Simulated scan of single mutants.
Amino acid sequence: MATHRIYRMSFGSVYPHYITKAEKKGRTKEEVDEIITWLTGYSQEELEAQLEKETDFETFFAEAPNMNPNRTLIKGVVCGVRVENVEEPVMREIRYLDKLIDELAKGKALEKIFRKDT
């Protein structure tokens, strides 16, 4: 299954693409890291350790210390799919992260990305 291949991909192999996408739009690596730590509860040091270990997506989300409960407020379309309608749990977490990075690249303020105004 194609979906299972995504789970087995190293989070660290995709991470540079998140950074590149943000930086092309004038955003920073630090903002990307802030989004990831907000979503997962990893500290900066824990995030860096996950990147070094080449942790796959499934493990990355399974080992997350504190998945943010406000992530369920993330709505919208990523890759033609509404994130709130993704039933498979790991894929939904991946799409939540994708959506947050998209919002960052589109210039949205971090407060809005973090759903602080809802």
Rank of each mutant, 00 (worst) to 15 (best):
E58Y: 09
V83F: 01
K75T: 12
N66Y: 07
N70S: 12
E93W: 00
I36G: 08
R82L: 10
P65L: 07
A49R: 13
A22W: 04
L73E: 12
R92K: 15
M9C: 10
V81R: 09
K106I: 05
T59Y: 02
K25F: 10
E48P: 01
M9N: 13
L47F: 05
I35K: 00
L73H: 06
A64M: 08
I94T: 07
Q44D: 12
G76P: 02
E84H: 10
G80W: 02
G76S: 04
Y18I: 07
H4A: 11
M1N: 13
D56W: 08
L73R: 08
R8V: 00
L73M: 14
I101T: 07
L39Y: 08
I94E: 06
R8A: 13
G41M: 03
G26I: 06
G107S: 05
L104W: 09
R71H: 13
K53Q: 11
K116F: 02
R82N: 12
F11L: 00
T3N: 04
H17L: 15
D117Y: 11
K24W: 04
E23Q: 15
A49K: 15
F57C: 00
Y96W: 13
V83D: 05
R92A: 07
V32E: 06
E111K: 13
K29E: 15
E103T: 09
A109R: 14
Y18R: 06
G107A: 08
E34A: 14
I36K: 01
E45M: 10
A2Q: 10
G107I: 02
T3D: 11
G80D: 00
W38L: 02
L97D: 04
K75C: 08
E48Y: 01
V14F: 00
T20W: 02
S43G: 11
E54A: 01
E88A: 03
V78Y: 14
E103V: 10
V78K: 05
Q50W: 02
V32S: 06
S10T: 09
R95L: 12
Y18F: 15
N85T: 12
V83Q: 03
K29M: 09
F60N: 09
P89R: 08
D98T: 00
V14P: 02
L110G: 07
Y15K: 04
T40M: 05
I35L: 07
D102L: 11
R115V: 02
R27W: 07
E88N: 11
S43M: 07
E48T: 04
L100F: 02
T40N: 07
L39H: 06
E34D: 13
R27H: 09
T3Q: 14
K21S: 12
E52D: 04
K29T: 13
K99W: 05
I94H: 08
K53W: 06
E87M: 11
M9P: 00
G41F: 05
E93R: 04
S43F: 05
L110M: 13
K29D: 12
Y96G: 03
M91Q: 13
E84C: 03
M1G: 15
S13A: 15
T72S: 13
E48H: 05
G76L: 06
T118L: 12
K24R: 15
V14M: 08
A49W: 00
K116T: 03
E93H: 07
L39G: 01
M91D: 10
K75A: 03
H4V: 13
Y18E: 03
R82V: 05
L104D: 08
F60M: 02
K112P: 05
